Simulated scan of single mutants.
Amino acid sequence: MNGDWRTFLSDAGACFEETRLLHFGDPDGERAAATGAVISPLTHRGVIEASGADTRDFLQNMTTNDLRQLSESRAQLSALLSPKGRMLALYRLFMRGENFFLGIPGATLEATLKRLRMFVLRSAVTLEDASERLVTLGIAGEDAAERLIPLFDTLPALADDVCHQGGLTLIRLSGLRPRYELYGEPAAMIEAWGRLREEGFTPVGAGPWGWLEIEAGVPSVEADTVEAFVPQMVNLQAVNGVSFTKGCYPGQEVVARSEYLGKMKRRMYRARADGDVLPAVGEELAAAGETVGANAGKVVAAQFHPEGGIELLAVIPSDEVERDAVHLGSVEGPKLRFLDLPYELPAKQ
């Protein structure tokens, strides 16, 4: 994490656990994600920069999405897979000028950078950790667009649209409510922070932003879920994270078979449960009833709901969801109540 950015946030009341921003010391403010306009410094995330004449072709051959659709005005989610089609990393690809950037969880950045470098060989590609130079801010709220107008002459209207101004890059995200990611160098972001606070945005920690990601049905790959899922298990195709027409990349054959042959037996669902202890990412769920004690799925992400209880995304066998008997921790744990996702999946899935 950039030291100047961390010092600035600490002076603004931020409390940290290592690189993760926990809160700003205001419990009521932390609940504002459900109803108000919020800004969340995503200090637990980092950025990889890729540059050089061969970069687009290199990334096109490594990742699940089609970089022919990527431009300074369009971003995309994409994943790096193992040869067996399992997700090693999930990141947001965007451009600033001629260079490419991957916004990625800090926990998987180093391993992702190392793996990508293995395949550069003689290509004119340079890969480096740009997290000290570019920092990330999450922005959300029903009237967030109106509040952002003083900072941007033009705003991104649709999911994955991108606008640039004054050294800042603003990306519109998918979801039930307007959400954005803002990238910029620390000095520009510190200035933007002041203007966003003037526009009435409430600062919140990583937890409320994580809940907004869950509400939007957007998966993540963290250290404990590396190689746990193929892309369709976490609905990556529903959030425009996979291209089925782009050609070859590591794991592509597995992804293609999953898409065109039969029904996925497991996929990602959104649910709520009672409780005041968050399940860990990668934690297994339990089934009650006829399959008592059976592995009923794996947690992708979990956060406290602003109104109480827990909301989560989990990859679960579809037949267990139909039986409606999935629990956190053990069969004696809280029962999951399944919620709608904000997107449709093909009938065969």
Rank of each mutant, 00 (worst) to 15 (best):
S243M: 08
C248N: 08
G262R: 10
N240L: 10
R266W: 09
L261F: 15
C248P: 09
R270I: 00
V254W: 01
R266I: 03
G262V: 09
F244Y: 15
R257Y: 02
N235T: 02
A256N: 14
R270W: 00
V239L: 03
S258T: 14
C248D: 05
R257P: 08
V239P: 02
V242I: 15
R272P: 01
F244R: 13
F244I: 09
V255E: 02
E259T: 13
K265L: 09
K263L: 01
S258V: 14
R270F: 00
V254A: 05
L236F: 13
P250E: 06
Y260N: 14
V242T: 09
G262C: 13
Q237M: 12
C248L: 02
R266C: 07
R272K: 15
R272E: 12
N235V: 06
V254Q: 01
R267K: 14
Q252A: 05
Y269S: 01
G251V: 05
T245N: 14
L236N: 06
N240G: 06
L236P: 04
R272Y: 04
Q237P: 03
A271H: 00
N235D: 13
L261S: 12
R266Q: 15
Y269C: 01
G251Q: 11
K246P: 07
M268V: 00
R270S: 03
M268S: 01
R270L: 13
P250Q: 06
G247A: 11
L261W: 08
G262E: 08
G262K: 07
E253M: 03
A256P: 04
E253F: 07
P250G: 09
T245D: 12
V239A: 01
Q237C: 01
P250S: 12
A256Q: 13
S243A: 10
Y249H: 11
Y269V: 02
